[in-house]
Design a protein around this nucleic acid. Structure first.
Lengths: 145, 145
DNA sequence: TTCCCCCTCATACTTTAGTATGATTTTCAC
DNA sequence: GTGAAAATCATACTAAAGTATGAGGGGGAA
């Protein structure tokens, strides 16, 4: 956690320095400073959005998993017995809602690779081969009868 | 939606101008430009975070409004209203049971190509892009509420 | 009988999904 | 603070899924 802060701090510093250098190299006070400021603004707004979403996502997943929210498939308790983790559960739910791996990755702010890893683990835990089977099995486990 | 963008854009512009004015009034190029940039960076990072949160909020309400379902027995009648044929229905059911296209093809004694054609037609009739979405949508149509 | 719909099959792609393996980093309990 | 479990990201594949387009045969309705 502290490392993360340091990294972000460093990144920010680097960006600032880089911008400074750019200013001297290319803008040389000739180019309207408004444009310069605009660039900085956009850059850091993006950074902020990304950072904010990352943070929120972390909080959210914790909160959701406890409130037992949302009527979908998932009976967390029963699925947990199969060794399925919190994150895998999230991925499973999004899968069941019809999203592609890429879309899930965007939604959770992680890479496509990560989603693939999660889903692969999920499949082996549920003893299935495909996402459609995983969805089906999860439903069976959650709502037996 | 377009209005929102305009509002935010205007807000951003105002901020930029304000910063520009501030620069002339108080900093007058004496104060180290790094600090100046830093302030801008922090400001816009905050703006970004706030904006990101706004976005998330909107997504969340949408996502929640569309979930909820249960067992999946397909109500042919209702699906037929969407122009889905008998064969397509069969394919859909087998899909929902987690079979691959190849497996479906074997089961129905037709070629893989045929299954792909059926599923493509199915998707366009259900207005979806993937099999998981088709399954979900079919379930929604069959068991509304 | 001719037209239209359904089912079938095909070629030739592009895009996602899934597998195998390895690595780093967090987190949490002991 | 160590160690184990989770989560992340990555490379490099192979295997499915999905898209676009065309085409032939069969059966029912006009």
């Amino acid at each position: 956690m502290k490392k993360t802060v340091l990294i972000y701090g460093a990144l920010l510093a680097v960006l600032v320095i880089l911008l400074r250098v750019l200013e001297y190299r290319f803008f040389v006070r000739d180019l309207s400073i408004e444009i310069y400021i605009g660039i900085i603004a956009i850059l850091f707004t993006s950074l902020g959005i990304w950072f904010g979403l990352k943070l929120i996502d972390r909080q959210k997943s914790k909160a959701i998993s406890q409130s037992g929210l949302d009527g979908f498939i998932i009976n967390s308790e029963k699925l947990r017995l199969h060794g399925i983790t919190e994150r895998e559960l999230e991925v499973l739910e999004l899968m069941a809602s019809g999203l592609s791996n890429q879309e899930i990755a965007n939604k959770l702010f992680v890479s496509l690779h990560t989603i693939k890893t999660h889903s692969a683990n999920l499949y082996s835990k549920l003893d299935v081969k495909r996402r459609t089977q995983a969805i089906r099995k999860a439903r069976e486990i959650s709502h037996p009868e």
